[in-house]
Amino acid sequence: MKLRGWLLGRVGGALATILMVLLLNFVLFRLMPGSPDRTLARNPRVSAEAIAAARVRWGLDKPLFPDQLVAYVGATLSGDFGYSVKYGGREVTSVIGEKIAPTLLIVGLGEIIALAAGIALGAWTGWRRGKFGDRVGTLSALILYSMPYFWLGMLLVTLFATTLGWLPTSGISTPGGPGGVAGIVDLLRHAALPIATIALGLIGQYAILLRSSVAEALREGYVLTARAKGLRDDRILRGHILPNALLPTVTLAALNAGYVIGGALTVEIVFSWPGLGLLTQEALQSRDYPVLQGIFLLLSISVVVANLLADLLYSRLDPRVRHGAAR
């Protein structure tokens, strides 16, 4: 099974990348000026013995390499990310953990909506390339594509929350609000604008990419063959063009999934949405290095995993890559 060998190679490559990220994570924070024991030493009431004891306790008496590195990698691999500075010494894993779900909710739903709408818009405009509908559709996609998330978010807040008053401006729930089904409705009302912002911002990207691959596919010989076969337009588009033209879009969607964690930063700040983006901003402001380190690692891993996913997906979808790899 050469396919298995290829697969092992890919997975191995991904693991190696994550290890490199770990190493970088270790080096980066130790390159920064200052160190925990020196912070401690600034306090004149802390005795030299206490500092020495702290150095031993934190493992700082050992050399950076290999002891400290091994200790860091070992702790990280066993799920010990250390303690947050800002959040009263809580474990980093629990601080980060409770922010994952809110982020996944808005970015995940936003991605799915954007993908569906972007594919529809891209296929439609690509098929009509050069015609009026294409120009309007592509221009709209381009405008959405070039809008920064935070600005788009503020526009939506101004329109739907401030002016029309249909939806709440920020937060994840009404303080002291209801529970049960009414609570879920309340959550979705709060999530609507962040989701819409992310979806609108991504639609243009998918639509423009797909439009160009559809327009390109239209010039291919197999489309002429499909036409000569007397197939209907929708069959030509769905049965012949899209299976080819969707390949780059699917890859992009898989890659984007890697930025689920980090991509929502500005959106979460605009809507005060208590997810990883907002957490990142707060951790940056309070120099909460353990939390930042944890987010950084999580981000890197999700990007690496998304890349692997895109690779595998592409090879599943395109028989040329599949067999090229298996050969």
């Binding site: 010989g221 197999y222 002429l224 063959t225 012949h240 028989p319 040329r320």
Partner: peptide, 10 residues
């Protein structure tokens, strides 16, 4: 040129 006349993913 049947390489282009046939659909590569079917």
């Amino acid at each position: 040129g049947s390489l282009v006349a046939l659909n590569p993913v079917i």
